[in-house]
Nucleic acid binder design. Sequence first.
DNA 1: CTGTTAGCGCATTCAT
DNA 2: ATGAATGCGCTAACAG
Lengths: 332, 332
Amino acid sequence: MANINDVAKKAGVSKSTVSNVFNGKKNVSDEIRQKVLKIADDIGYYPNKLASALTTKRTGLTGLFIDNNSKFRYMDYKLIEGVSRELKKSNKHIILYLQAGKSDDDNQIDINNKLISEPIDDAIIVAPMVKDIRINELIDMRKSIVIIGQAPNNSLPKVKCLDVDNIKISYEVTKYLLELGHRKITLINSDPNMTISIDRMKGYLAALKEYNVEFNPEYTFNSDNTEAMGEQLGSRIFKSLDMTAVITSSDEIASGLYNEAKKAGISIPDDISIFALGGTDKKLNPSLCTVYVDYEMLGREAVALLSNKEVIDNQVIDSYKLLISDSIKSIL
Amino acid sequence: MANINDVAKKAGVSKSTVSNVFNGKKNVSDEIRQKVLKIADDIGYYPNKLASALTTKRTGLTGLFIDNNSKFRYMDYKLIEGVSRELKKSNKHIILYLQAGKSDDDNQIDINNKLISEPIDDAIIVAPMVKDIRINELIDMRKSIVIIGQAPNNSLPKVKCLDVDNIKISYEVTKYLLELGHRKITLINSDPNMTISIDRMKGYLAALKEYNVEFNPEYTFNSDNTEAMGEQLGSRIFKSLDMTAVITSSDEIASGLYNEAKKAGISIPDDISIFALGGTDKKLNPSLCTVYVDYEMLGREAVALLSNKEVIDNQVIDSYKLLISDSIKSIL
DNA sequence: CTGTTAGCGCATTCAT
DNA sequence: ATGAATGCGCTAACAG
């Protein structure tokens, strides 16, 4: 494989001139530039990115960090797509790291998973843990970082975050149901300690207040977003509560409710309306009212944020849409 | 950022000893090994991958090449997942290249898209073009390559290929319909020049022959796998042909047929059975009979093949399943 | 506008 | 078992 010296020698110029040519530096005469380019092409020379990265400290690679614990979700796929397409615009590339936010063995960090020497210019972290070792490592490396999802509360220095406005989404979904005449609306939330749950509760409360509906804590639940949990909750609330609508933290929970409703002879949406807060593109019957989030766009925005020098505390992106469908009904 | 010299100096040893320690070389006394490790940990040293790659010629990165012309398909997502998870097992990572197989401007290769200096050890190419410039470049670079999908016919040296057995799939689908009593079965194929179309035709013919059904060329069509094309074909064949079943080259085509059938008042599966040859995970109503291919597994296999030194001409993987559902009906 | 020199951080001979 | 020297291929700072 030809290197810069071969070209320089054949062209009768110095290495730095060749380097200048390939880096688009202006201080090379047109004549020499052409000559160098011609010879380089002849002998099949092209600068070695590894070598140049060693001095420039730039690889043109951005790390996308996805938790390794479960299969990729719809969101992961779309983020990968958005990030890689956006990087492509500036001839950069994505490298995927499937790395858990906490070490498997909590006491000892796997030395092979140390990020310190990874050949990336910057990093995007998807849905980090509350105490995420990757973030600290990355900060130590002085990489610029963008987090997609909630910032870990302990986040020492300010880290740029990108997320959808969960308060607003929850508010709008609740309001939508209220406008259809629903007053007894159950909210199935995620883990109560997660910021997203708190946000969703805020939006829910805000909408209720706006419609002068008194908040009843008996109408709120928490879940782990599995279908099984949806079934479990369904079997419980369908019997004990007389709500007319349910907002679920995810499509999976909704799916569990569907199963349980069928078993109990409850009709959706005739007996009960269900509005999910998104998560997958799973199809249900009757088709589920849910929230579509443009994760691909979130990915693109994350890339844009990486090179944004301003210190931004927490960027909120409005890239969602309520998908109105057959699982809700007006009761006016 | 600490480097190997810092460690060597503090430990009172030479750089090469430090190097030996981190590369697991045996010729270092335990005493010194511990000392070096301790000091490295203290000052936060870890070998720089860029620098070591410069001499070892190995980056631990595998390129996955996906065509950039359209949005990612279901297949792409699953391949990304399979490849990256398999690489992860050996502490390697995936870097995504969204690069068209042919240069946008056919006469002139974009110098920025040259692969020659990319920091990858090997490459996996998804569904290459017939004349794919990326493959030639990669071969010039002496990278090991695995192709997922059909090998380009012109493929100069032998390149490892990985694909599902399209003949067999098509054969089994056709047979399935034949066993349900169907005799007039339309086959909507992809581009007639693509190997996959030829294979599917082979399987189709084989099954027909086995059941002594004479082949009628009027019952075969070609498509570009868009939903629009499905509608177009539907409007044509629903009127003119009296087939009882249709095999479509993709779920999208099937979706087009669904639309057109609805418009024409044709019931699926009562009037006509539809069996798709896979492609997406789009849900239709009535739910579509289609072929599920385990692309994630294909991705894993591709990674395994990369490090397989044997010269294998064309590896066929049986990782599919017929998904029987509501769009077909027995007419016995 | 061009060339010389000096690293970047490491792995790899080859001595010892 | 350890160390000194050399080179991987390039960019950057400076000198001319």
